[in-house]
Amino acid sequence: MTTAEKYVTAAYCVVFAGVLVYVVLIALKLQRLEREVGELERAAHKAAEDERETVEVG
């Protein structure tokens, strides 16, 4: 590889790495969102169960 080829490759790798870092950041955010949805889900289930217990029959 000549120097020019190395630099050009480096430039394209930088672009690729930039996009990749962005994807990683988005993935981290997605994980956090998933966790929060899980918490909400548990809270919703719990609320539903509580409700079931308090209903009086007859």
Partner: peptide, 14 residues
């Protein structure tokens, strides 16, 4: 824009 700065800087170097 950051990618422009990085690639431009490499181009300037070559």
């Amino acid at each position: 824009g950051t990618l422009v700065l990085l690639t431009g800087s490499i181009w300037a170097k070559i």
